[in-house]
Write a protein that binds this DNA or RNA. Structure first.
Lengths: 208, 208
DNA sequence: TGTATCCGATACATGGATGTATCGGTCAGC
DNA sequence: GCTGACCGATACATCCATGTATCGGATACA
């Protein structure tokens, strides 16, 4: 009995994974609304029967896809945080951490942006997005605070606000990069500039 | 004959305007792909006959909508640039100029972001987006250079790159604001921080 | 080998969107 | 008032996506 259950579950999980892989690519290519369930299934080598055997609706598939990708991203981010010990230039190191933590591939940018739009219209899809943003924000804030402490500098701007700004900048650059790939080059200098301003208060202005 | 032509054109233009208004709201509510031609028409008080009398396809409608809105935006931006004379604090003034030039309403954010995604998949739709970005970039660069000249400061970062960064930041903040409206508050301080860093080179670092 | 279970494929019914073709109303000019 | 042109509505044919219900095959265990 247990063996049977085990085998069943494994089979289902494998096909779900393949369906999610197919969904990622299909949604990136055609967009979520424009892609049909059949498009996803045929790309994964299935027919629609397989889909309706594991999902109830296309929205549910989207949510499952987003959840899986988010879990992967958070795992990578967490792993990047652990190794943050002594670095030569803490600011530069923190920037590089951020940049390598963010996912930059076109496929994910397309799908994640579309999910943000989707969430703006469907409140039940928004809770996933909010949860992820909160997690990412907490991690980024921790990274910034740790880096500042290691460098022995005081931040002019609260780390939380800085984290939000960095995330927003990254989203904007990703969106821009979709059409003009060279735009990707502005992210690193922009982050450096931002952090320099955050750790080094301008001498002539108000010394808050 | 000429009178007839004139009357015809005016009539058509009015219904096209109403269709574009309806399309803006419908696309914002449901998304471009999810919205049907009939949805747009019924919101504008028409049937599909009116639509197919002026447009060939939904993509064409989208392009027309984007073109119209872009023209309006550029007109506003250009108007904002003209009045840039003496200001007390040039940096703050420039930031306020930028912020008031950008369109922040949720409707437009939804539609513009969706157009960016649309453009990433349809090259012929991308040319419109690229043209607009180039125009906006030129205006922003001009604004920055003028403000820097008026303030008598030298920029550490090329104005063009700064303009691109500002635009990206704005896009990211807008996207973030869709789900968590309080995120809108980070844009102004972020811009200020960015510009402070750009005009005041950190004293201890390389004095490029 | 027989059997029960699960999973994915196939078939079918339904609804909705698209595009076209045609009709009717409205308005300017004679 | 009559005419011609234009514009938007209506009707129709077609296609495609969805969801369900059923069928067939594969597998593990007795």
């Amino acid at each position: 009995m247990y063996r049977i259950q085990c085998r069943i579950v494994r089979r289902r999980e494998v096909t779900v994974e393949r369906l999610l892989d197919a969904a990622l690519e299909t949604f990136a290519e055609q967009g979520f609304a424009a892609a049909s369930v059949e498009d996803v299934c045929s790309r994964g080598g299935f027919t629609r029967g397989a889909f309706y055997s594991s999902f109830r609706t296309k929205d549910e598939l989207f949510a499952a896809l987003f959840t899986r990708e988010l879990a992967r991203e958070m795992a990578r981010v967490e792993e990047l945080l652990t190794g943050l010990a002594e670095e030569a230039d803490p600011v530069t190191a923190a920037v590089d951490r951020c940049l390598s933590a963010f996912r930059t591939d076109r496929t994910w940018t397309l799908v994640a942006t579309e999910y943000a739009l989707h969430a703006a219209r469907h409140p039940d899809a928004a809770v996933l997005l909010e949860r992820h943003r909160a997690e990412l924000h907490a991690q980024l804030t921790g990274l910034i605070e740790r880096a500042a402490a290691d460098a022995g500098v005081r931040l002019v701007v609260p780390a939380g606000r800085l984290a939000r700004t960095i995330a927003a900048l990254h989203d904007g650059v990703s969106l821009l990069t979709l059409s003009s790939p060279c735009a990707h080059d502005i992210e690193r200098p922009a982050l450096l500039l931002l952090l320099q301003a955050a750790v080094a208060p301008p001498p002539s202005e108000s010394e808050n």
